[in-house]
Design a protein around this nucleic acid. Structure first.
Lengths: 335, 335
DNA sequence: CTTCGTCCCGTGAACGTTCACGGAGACGCT
DNA sequence: AGCGTCTCCGTGAACGTTCACGGGACGAAG
């Protein structure tokens, strides 16, 4: 002894009692006198004893569940509000939530790291689906936004086709004619790091906009400053645009700020519409219109899939579980 | 068998191999033929086998560390940006982060729940310190903002005394004379739930403001709408105020919005200053001035304390470890 | 035919707790 | 004295995995 970890046995020996007595003292159980409890607690503190949570959970046969959450960024309120909703949904059931952000690593790496600590992982993934599943080592994966195509992967898909079609229609009703899109080039800071891949939002836009508008797309960094930069480039390349759709609200806020700097009146000269539905958009001047994603619904569906998967006794759920949430326009004064 | 959990032994039996072979297959280890690996993986999938992460971590003697993070709210970007910083700091070391929000439970309950899953817990606590420490069951607690007074509790304190004294001074230099404060009444939704206790920010304000100003305080909900409401009440009660200090940036944004609604020019008629230093404050019109808290520094110090505490061999750190971070004014156009 | 090496695979023994027992002593009552 | 009832405490045996070994089968080399 001396080397290695301080175990319950060390404490027991030092206090002159048995393992079980130490357990009773540490966990506040009955069948122990106040005297010895005090003694044990003190010697435990003196030795710097910290119980092994792994041994403890194993022996106690606890069903403590924790779900990993892989987000695009913790600096974008959309993601963190989603996290908030998920926490609201699972905390009452006693589940824990492990956080990870794609800002600090590859999809697959994150999943691999989380797989040892979580019973299920939900998140925004962009990596190869097969690689993700193998990295998960058997823990169920629930993908948000993207559809799942391989076994072992389930999904809460966001129906941007329906949403953007509806949005463009309503915008036309409001007089919009010449659209433009500020598209995401990936997480902030990854400027040109990975290969750019068109997002589902862009695809939907190109599909449902008129052919002229479909060509008016600029790719920008997924941040406030990226949105500002995007708007400047979009207006430079396509001066006639009267309505700009932005990949997300954060970028849209940057775009609105830029418009203001350039002396462009919103919505008089230019309509701006974001995606996400951040409550902070309401305090902008003018308040930001947006394609709102029901984060509570996403969280609920995801948690539900996790529950189904984990409680299932023996048979594996072969056809991937898929739920759908459709974003809806939320009109405020910027459009 | 049949009842209870599916163990590695079940898979081994079903595949006609031994435990160790199953381990090798599941973890992608060598010393196994492609044939049997395939077989084992398939039967594992068919049985719906998911390894016990507790048993696994215990047997592998892994030093996987995870720190719990207790925040006031996940809907306030200040907290989530702090989380982002912490993640940035600890992720490279391979540590995990467990999230919890005071919106869904008492301090002490959260700590108790987390103590089984985390090796250390850092957070914004408001509850009784002794109760917190006992709930932690030996896992180290690091408290942010508040100073620690009991053994087992450590702290990263925010020096609002120094910060607010400096802030008020600089505001006076800019012509501010009649101050007012919008103070927090606790987390959103807890309207009148717990007993209101003056925050350290309020205490500092009352100490360093002139005696007239010290009396101009309203308590409001810790949210955008709370800030708006607070400003309305403050102006109604004290019409002559020319400068308002707000508990945090989120509330300050609400206050600015309310000022705009009421036709009060900022900063012409009224200066508004928040606390936190949110980057989103920069996109407000006018951009929000604020007492900026260096979240990176807070996260770094907290992680450092955790590291020190966990790597220490035997002796317990008796004098609580304390680090200090001082907020600094960040001037933008609202003041 | 022996010897050595390589490739697979299996068997005890950990890992550090908690659970289900069982038992010693103190005390009160008949 | 005998018996029952508390209160407090200790001893094997789990929990489900991985680690350190050891060993058989097979082919190549001597």
């Amino acid at each position: 002894m001396g080397v290695g970890r301080i175990t319950i046995e060390d404490v027991a020996a030092a206090a002159g009692v048995s393992r079980q007595t130490v357990t009773r003292a540490m966990n506040g159980m009955p069948e122990i006198s106040a005297r010895t409890r005090e003694l044990v607690l003190r010697t435990a503190a003196e030795l710097g004893y910290r119980p092994s949570r792994f041994a403890s959970n194993l022996a106690a046969r606890r069903k403590s569940r924790s779900v990993g959450l892989v987000l695009g960024s913790l600096r974008n309120p959309y993601y963190t509000e989603l996290a908030a909703e998920l926490l609201d949904v699972v905390a009452p059931r006693g589940w824990h939530v492990l956080m990870a952000s794609r800002e600090q690593g590859d999809d697959v790496e994150l999943v691999a790291a989380l797989s040892g600590q979580a019973d299920a992982i939900v998140g925004y993934f962009t990596g190869d689906e097969t690689a993700l599943v193998t990295a998960a080592r058997g823990v169920p994966l629930i993908q948000v936004e993207r559809a799942a195509t391989v076994p072992g992967l389930h999904a809460v898909v966001l129906d941007f086709d329906a949403a953007i079609e509806a949005l463009l229609g309503e915008l036309r009703d409001r007089g919009a004619r010449r659209f433009g899109l500020i598209e995401s080039g990936g997480p902030p800071g990854e400027e040109g790091a990975g290969a750019y891949r068109p997002t589902r939002r862009r695809r939907a836009y190109e599909r449902f906009a008129d052919s002229d508008s479909a060509g008016r797309v600029v790719v920008a960094d997924e941040s406030i400053r990226g949105g500002a930069d995007g708007l400047a480039r979009l207006r430079a390349a396509h001066p006639g645009v009267d309505t700009v759709l932005v990949f997300n609200d954060l970028m849209a806020m940057g775009a609105m700020q830029q418009a203001q700097l350039d002396g462009v009146a919103v919505p008089g000269d230019l309509r701006v519409v974001g995606v996400d539905g951040l409550s902070l958009g309401a305090v902008m001047t003018p308040p930001l219109s947006t394609l709102s994603i029901d984060r509570r619904a996403v969280a609920t569906e995801a948690a539900d899939i996790v529950g189904t998967l984990l409680d299932r006794a023996e048979p594996p759920p072969h056809p991937p579980v898929v739920r759908t949430v459709t974003p809806r326009p939320l009109w405020r004064e910027s459009a």
